[in-house]
């Protein structure tokens, strides 16, 4: 029997705006087993971040339900650690304080807290930066701190919203590899939003391709390639070609809609 971690059932999300209602999500149906690495893939505006925010508890679905470990999601919580594209580190706290923030809130004893922070600094190669403030770190280092901040609470589920989207290609690859290493060690469930096809194939057990408005699931496929995956291999590229076709079709629809909206203005 499959151990279902996240259960998304008939989820719809409608945003009211002056130009009429926007259906961001329509009847999303998806179960994520524990320990799976899932990528939500699609062009911007396809509702993948909206779905992630709903799982995080930042936005309540207009219809349908999301349960995590059988419990209905109605508010954000530390059991679903979120990593943002904009890092969202607290700029007034140094690296160490940022990582310890969640532990402070939980009221963990100081020595225990220090042990966790030290372990994570070491794990993410941040030990030399512990006293630095975020603004003195590169984007890659900032995102490492953000990941450590989430890992400090050891959440069973990690939600990642285009976390490497703002990084250069080389930093991106090294963080992807590092994330896979961490995931292999802890086997947390990861829901990872991206618009990069290659990133999705490189990382995920399973890729969920979403459609542009209304956001629905276009394709739900298992990536059956052995890790570490070689982006130059024929199998990788076959899959990349197939996915590119699916995603580009949605990208076309997104640009068409934009052009129509511009014409109306």
């Amino acid at each position: 029997m499959v151990d279902t971690h996240i259960s998304i059932s008939h989820v719809g999300m409608v945003f009211r705006s002056s130009g009429g209602d926007v259906v961001a999500l329509d009847d999303i149906q998806c179960d994520v087993p524990r320990g799976e690495f899932v990528c939500l893939l699609g062009p911007s505006g396809c509702g993948k971040s909206t779905l992630l925010n709903a799982i995080a508890g930042f936005a309540r679905p207009t219809s349908g339900t999301i349960t995590v470990d059988g419990r209905l999601i109605s508010a954000p919580g530390p059991d679903r650690g979120m990593v943002f594209q904009e890092y969202a580190l607290f700029p007034w706290m140094n690296v160490e304080r940022n990582i310890a923030f969640g532990l402070d809130i939980k009221g963990i004893a100081a020595d225990q807290k220090q042990a966790v922070v030290d372990r994570l600094l070491d794990k993410l190669g941040l030990s030399d930066f512990r006293d630095r403030f975020p603004r003195d770190l590169s984007g890659g280092m900032r995102q490492r701190v953000a990941i450590a901040r989430v890992l400090a609470l050891d959440p069973p589920l990690m939600l990642m919203d285009e976390p490497f989207g703002a990084l250069d290609a080389l930093t991106r690859r090294s963080l992807q590899t590092e994330l896979l290493r961490i995931w292999t060690e802890d086997r947390k469930t990861i829901v990872f939003v991206t618009h990069s096809i290659e990133e999705a194939i490189y990382l995920a057990d399973r890729i969920v391709v979403m459609t542009y408005r209304p956001g629905t699931i276009k394709r739900d496929l298992v990536v059956d390639l052995p890790r570490p995956r070689d982006p130059a291999s024929p199998a990788f590229n076959d899959l990349k070609r197939d996915l590119a076709e699916l995603v580009m079709a949605e990208q076309e629809r997104s640009s068409d809609a934009e052009r129509r909206a511009a014409a109306v203005d």
Partner: peptide, 27 residues
């Protein structure tokens, strides 16, 4: 608002958010 979202995600209460996020962020 991203700081507020990050803090809520890490389990902060309204009081903690006020004291440890809003106050320093507006300092």
């Amino acid at each position: 608002s991203i700081y507020l979202r990050a803090a809520r995600n890490l389990g902060a209460s309204s009081m903690t958010i006020f004291r440890r996020v809003i106050l320093p962020a507006s300092s």
